[in-house]
């Protein structure tokens, strides 16, 4: 460890607390130290196995949502929590077929880990 790193570590550890190391530039925004995780996956039909476009994927706890694309895929960052509920809802009427809504509870989540893949099949109504 260099002398500079040693001094830095000492000061960080004792007299000023880690608050010194969290800074924001005067014309910038705050730093981001919060844990989150990337949820990725796809939605397919239980009957045909084909991807379903237009399914709303909703993080129940935060209200964040995304609609699956033409490949049935979604990808979103969500704040980390130990468990969360993903809601899959057919919100586009008859446009891409009628599917029953489904909820999936994710548990034992690890912050800032590799993307978490959530592949779901939905039953046709």
């Amino acid at each position: 460890m260099t002398m500079q790193n040693w001094i830095r570590g000492m000061i960080k550890g004792m007299s000023f607390t880690t608050a010194l190391f969290i800074f924001q530039c005067c014309y910038g925004m705050p730093q981001d130290m919060q844990d989150d995780l990337l949820l990725e996956g796809s939605v397919t039909s239980k009957t045909t196995g084909l991807p379903i476009e237009g399914i709303k994927v909703n993080v129940k706890e935060t209200g964040q949502s995304q609609t699956t694309n033409s490949e049935g895929k979604f990808s979103l960052y969500a704040p980390w929590m130990e468990s969360m509920t993903l809601q899959f809802q057919d919100v586009d009427g008859n446009e891409n077929g009628f599917y029953a809504d489904s909820d999936t509870v994710l548990t034992d989540l690890i912050p800032d880990s590799e993307p978490l893949t959530v592949d779901i099949t939905l039953e046709e109504k």
Binding site: M29, P30, Q34, L38, T62, Q64, S75, L76
Partner: peptide, 27 residues
Amino acid sequence: WGIVTNGHLYNREKHNTLLNAGMGALT
């Protein structure tokens, strides 16, 4: 990443898509 904005175009849809894209800081 984060953004510094005047907020003029920051509506509910933009809020949602930016969070989905991993934005963690905002001024």
